[in-house]
């Protein structure tokens, strides 16, 4: 996806691109490393599913932080990697759901149907993934052109809902200690609040 513009980029840009790419790939590599060394803990499937879910959510929140970061720092660099980070978030979400359906429940049909129709945290999580699919599908430069900037931007506002649904999925899952999911919800609240503030002030969001 970056090949088109890569040629015109400086070596500094290239370095940044690789740094972000490697940064996003590291959690996946770590998982592979733990698997290779038998270091996934007492409940390996739980470790895999949780780790992938954690990183899907972390990277999703990170993509939402890039625009406020631009406003804060005045640098356009953060938003230049939003597409890549967003696609990584999507990849982690897909792997998370795949690990859950294949490894955790072993493609057991009745369990899957039951979960999708009766377990609120699964339904909310699945809704988050569904919202991310059109965003990933329209992430190419060609699709942006085909849709037109205005419609594309409107479509990609779905990410706000996906972020909340992702954090909500986590919140609905935990038994008693809601500290971690509340951190995500607070971060999202902060990021959305900043945007709402700018919108109310009539400035670009």
């Amino acid at each position: 996806m970056a090949r088109l513009t890569m040629a015109r980029r400086s070596s500094r840009d290239r370095l940044w691109w690789w740094a972000v790419f490697v940064g996003c790939a590291l959690p996946l590599a770590a998982l592979g490393g733990w698997a290779a060394t038998g270091d996934l803990g007492v409940n390996p499937i739980e470790t895999i599913v949780r780790h992938l879910g954690d990183w899907a959510l972390r990277l999703l929140v990170l993509t939402l932080a890039l625009t406020p970061l631009r406003h804060l720092t005045g640098s356009t660099r953060p938003v230049r990697y939003r597409r890549m980070i967003g696609l990584w978030a999507f990849a982690y979400a897909v792997l998370h759901v795949t690990a859950y359906t294949v490894l955790d429940i072993g493609l057991h049909g009745p369990t899957l149907v039951d979960d999708l129709t009766q377990r609120p945290y699964i339904m909310v999580g699945m809704a988050a993934l569904l919202l991310l699919i059109p965003l990933a599908a329209t992430s190419t430069t060609g699709m942006i052109k085909r849709l037109g900037g205005r419609r594309w931007r409107r479509l990609h506002r779905l990410v706000y809902a996906a972020g909340l649904l992702g954090a909500g999925h986590y919140l609905l899952m935990v038994k008693a200690d809601i500290t971690q999911p509340m951190i995500y919800i607070a971060l999202l609240g902060l990021l959305y609040g900043v945007r709402a503030g700018r919108w109310l002030a009539g400035r670009p969001v």
Binding site: D104, T111, D114, D115, R119
Partner: peptide
């Protein structure tokens, strides 16, 4: 209410 008890994973 939040998950099925029909099956389990033996560690």
């Amino acid at each position: 209410p939040r998950w099925s008890q029909a099956r389990e994973r033996r560690i």
